[in-house]
Structure formats: C-alpha cells, structure tokens
C-alpha cells in the first residue's frame, strides 16, 4: 500500500468553495434590497429644487405682504378724504384748499 500523497493547492477538490446559500437566496435578493433603497439621487435633487422654489416664493409673499397692506391703507385714506370733500359745500371747500390746513 502506497502512503497517501499530501494534498496541495492544485488539488481540484480544494478549489471548490465549501459554502452554500439558503434556498432561492439570489432569486429574492433584489426584492429584499429594493425595500432598503433610498429615493434615487436624481429624484431627491428634483424634490430639493421644488422645495427651494416653494420656499423662495413663500419668502417673497411674506416680504411683500406689508407693502400690500400699506398700499391698501393709503388707498382707503384717499377714498375717505374724497368722501369728506364731497360732503363740503363749495365755499368751505375752496377755503380749505387755499389754506394750509
């Protein structure tokens, strides 16, 4: 009986990986992975740009609100003045116009 030859790395038996995977692992891998994937960067960027535009529009609206209020008040004052003038007789009206009041 000849002594057993020591195994070397060139032995084809050793070149086989001794590992296995659970049944159907590769069939379900993408399905499981897709649940973990965050929103794609391109969509995120698009969403971010929409949010930025919305924020800018809101800021503009907020900044212009006092201006609108001021213009409205001014118009209401002028309208009231005209109403008062309309209630005066002609003499008093000219008297007021010529005075510095």
């Amino acid at each position: 009986m000849t002594p057993q030859k020591p195994k070397t790395l060139s032995d084809p038996q050793l070149q086989q990986l001794p590992y296995k995977t659970p049944d159907g692992y590769f069939d379900t891998f993408y399905q499981n992975l897709s649940k973990e994937l965050p929103a794609p960067t391109t969509q995120t960027r698009q969403l971010r740009s929409y949010i930025l535009w919305a924020a800018a529009a809101l800021l503009l609206l907020l900044l212009s609100l006092p201006l609108f209020t001021q213009l409205n008040t001014q118009a209401a004052t002028e309208e009231y003045e005209l109403y008062l003038y309309s209630q005066l007789d002609q003499n008093t009206y000219y008297e007021l116009l010529s005075s510095n009041y």
Partner: peptide
C-alpha cells in the same frame, strides 16, 4: 449551517 465542506476543506478555509 451554510458550510458545506469536508474536513480538508475546513482546514483550507
């Protein structure tokens, strides 16, 4: 449980 080798392969690993 997912190791599928014999003694020699275990030695190699």
């Amino acid at each position: 449980p997912y190791f599928d080798g014999d003694q020699l392969q275990l030695v190699l690993q």
